[in-house]
Nucleic acid binder design. Structure first.
Lengths: 184, 184
DNA sequence: ATACTCAACTTGACAGTGTAAAGATAATCG
DNA sequence: CGATTATCTTTACACTGTCAAGTTGAGTAT
């Protein structure tokens, strides 16, 4: 039939909507296609199959993730390095909490070793790396970055499991204390 | 037909084997049943359906996880508290690396809020809590435990993505340095 | 001992899934 | 203008989880 303009992006967006509404379980090729208004075989032409489409959604997800982190960084009036690092990392955790399905898919798909996906994902790491820079004082930078990254990601991942409100004060203050210990 | 003795445990074990061999994708109800030597409808009698079976596998997985951590703790001759904490946490990371499919399923299923699953999972937390105890010096214990737990889990989760050999020296030394920073 | 009950398991059917092959249509290019 | 090619649809197939109905076998009450 008539080629839709930019159907790939439409499919990716449909997939993201489904992820936000129904989680990873609801993400099927046929539902994505139906929501985009095309037949169930249309996606294969652009992404090869469901695995390829998932990689594309994950890549787009990492792009949104990066935008989210950048927005948090640039939208902060505070100039204290710790507050800035904390702000970006809270954005990290908040993204994982508010977009559970997408977040899960993103890091699941990392194991596919897709080059473009990996490159996009690395962008988020550089933001964290940048925010960590003020605290590298003679110490090995990689160790500090890995520590902060691991702590933040672990906190985000563990927090995702529970169906707690995104900004439970106890947990967030606990994270802040941990981060303080780490960069001390 | 003749009731198999302890079919539930047979099914759980079959599921674990499939997870170890083919990962999360290969874990289907029909394959589990076939491997256990029963018809595809047999599992429903014991677990309700695939979701229930997955919860059961995850629960059993957390039990194995706990055994794994306990074995690491009890099999250490070292008496230095840091080395003991490090040893248990490396066992945590090693389990995640060597049993990717099971580990992923375990923490995925946490969101089901199943009581027994939650209780079993909490057991692993207590081991970490126990190993952290020597380092709580007036500081709030929960913050330190959350920090160590988050760091370790985050490191395990991120490490799972890459298809790196389980004990890549750079990454492990990086983790050790991070842990040192944290408990300093 | 015999009939009853009931849990365990099988069989068969159904809607839904991803993928592959073949056909239709529209845009592009020679 | 005609041919070609990419895009999309249709159709078919094997596989999935779940449900309903049937079968079997062990235990129980009378």
């Amino acid at each position: 039939m008539a080629p839709r303009p930019d159907l790939p992006q439409l499919l990716i967006q449909a997939g993201m909507d489904i992820l936000d509404e129904d989680g990873t379980e609801g993400l099927t090729l046929r539902r994505i296609a139906a929501r985009a208004g095309v037949s169930h075989a249309a996606p294969a032409h652009h992404f090869g199959g469901l695995p390829g489409l998932k990689v594309a959604i994950a890549t787009c997800g990492f792009q949104s993730f990066l935008d989210h982190l950048n927005a948090a960084r640039d939208g902060m009036s505070d100039s204290d390095p710790f507050q800035r690092l904390l702000g970006v990392n809270l954005a990290y955790i908040q993204f994982a909490s508010s977009r559970r399905g997408l977040f899960r898919l993103m890091f699941d798909q990392l194991s596919t070793q897709d080059p473009e996906l990996g490159k996009t994902a690395l962008g988020s790491y550089f933001v964290l790396k940048q925010m960590c820079a003020p605290f590298v004082q003679g110490r090995p930078a990689a160790a500090l970055e890995t520590a902060v990254w691991g702590l933040t990601h672990g906190y985000a991942a563990l927090n995702m499991g529970q169906r707690r409100p995104p900004n439970s004060p106890l947990e967030l203050s606990s994270y802040e204390a941990a981060l303080r210990l780490l960069i001390g």
